[in-house]
């Protein structure tokens, strides 16, 4: 396959950046999207150019690092996959492909396609954990959990924190990510002790990071590689309202 790539190049955080056009030839349709960028980078290195910086790690769809906005969609044209799971057979010979970084005030560009997603880490640090000592594992029958709650908590916990929800949202809102993290703990008994302060602190941190507010378009769940539902956002709103009304935080 021969392709034309229009890639966002930006030297560093303070550089203005621009779209640069590249041609890649003889790409196998079985090549993954990241391998295609690897091939382009090899060519660039051979020509003495700076290779394109991009995030990637596990290359098996579980780490959430490969953040690329491909042809107007996070992680490209297919549903429920990350960029590393995208293959070139999803494109046609002669296609022009736009490749851009996630765009959000909360995700500043570090270089080229690499963005700083530590805002998500700070939101987790604000309360996305259980700090009470739960001791060593006890008999499982002592903690009965309805199957439906366990399944929902597990579905929420599949969030890999990639940021596709922010990238896809017209408001660059992080509500799907934060609500998944709030939900997975709100649904389980271990999360109850810190339930109210968790949602209050995580939402406060989310706002501080400069993410937008949810207007319920549903673009996030359509682009989420793990199929996280906006049912979580409604749950977080419920948690937030009830915490605001009843918590001791004045």
């Amino acid at each position: 396959m021969n392709l034309t790539l229009k890639v966002w190049r930006q030297k560093n955080a303070s550089d203005k950046g621009k779209i640069v056009e590249y041609k890649v030839n003889d790409i196998s349709p079985d090549c993954s999207f990241l391998e295609m960028i690897d091939i382009l980078n090899n060519n660039l290195v051979e020509l003495g150019d700076e290779p394109i910086a991009f995030d990637h790690d596990c290359r098996e769809g579980i780490c959430g690092m490969c953040s690329m906005f491909i042809n107007g969609r996070p992680h490209g044209p297919s549903d429920e996959i990350t960029t590393c799971q995208l293959h070139m057979r999803s494109f046609k010979d002669g296609d022009t492909i736009f490749i851009e970084p996630w765009r959000a005030e909360g995700f500043p560009v570090i270089k080229d396609l690499t963005v700083d997603r530590t805002a998500f880490d700070r939101i987790i640090e604000a309360g996305g954990y259980v700090s009470v000592n739960t001791g060593s594992a006890q008999d499982a029958n002592n903690l009965p959990i309805p199957k439906i709650d366990a399944d929902k908590a597990f579905d929420s916990a599949t969030c890999i924190g990639c940021g596709a929800c922010v990238a896809a949202c017209k408001n660059a809102s992080a509500m799907l990510f934060v609500s998944a993290k709030v939900s997975q703990l709100a649904l389980l008994p271990q999360g109850q002790v810190e339930r109210k302060q968790r949602v209050e602190n995580m939402v406060a941190q989310m706002d501080e990071e400069g993410f937008g507010s949810c207007t319920n378009t549903g673009a996030c769940e359509a682009e989420c590689p793990k199929g996280i539902s906006i049912e979580n956002i409604a749950r977080m709103n419920r948690e937030y309202f009830s915490a605001k009304i009843s918590s001791d935080n004045v």
């Binding site: 229009k6 966002w8 779209i19 906005f69 042809n71 107007g72 969609r73 736009f98 851009e100 765009r103 959000a104 005030e105 909360g106 896809a168 017209k170 408001n171 660059a172 809102s173 400069g210 993410f211 937008g212 507010s213 207007t215 319920n216 378009t217 549903g218 673009a219 769940e221 359509a222 682009e223």
Partner: peptide, 25 residues
């Protein structure tokens, strides 16, 4: 105002997700 400030630089190519209705956007 808050939501516009949350994305200071837009995308060169942006396809709206099929699930998000025109009215909602």
């Amino acid at each position: 105002r808050k939501n516009t400030a949350a994305r200071p630089i837009g995308y060169a190519a942006s396809k709206s997700a099929s699930k998000a209705t025109w009215a909602s956007r």
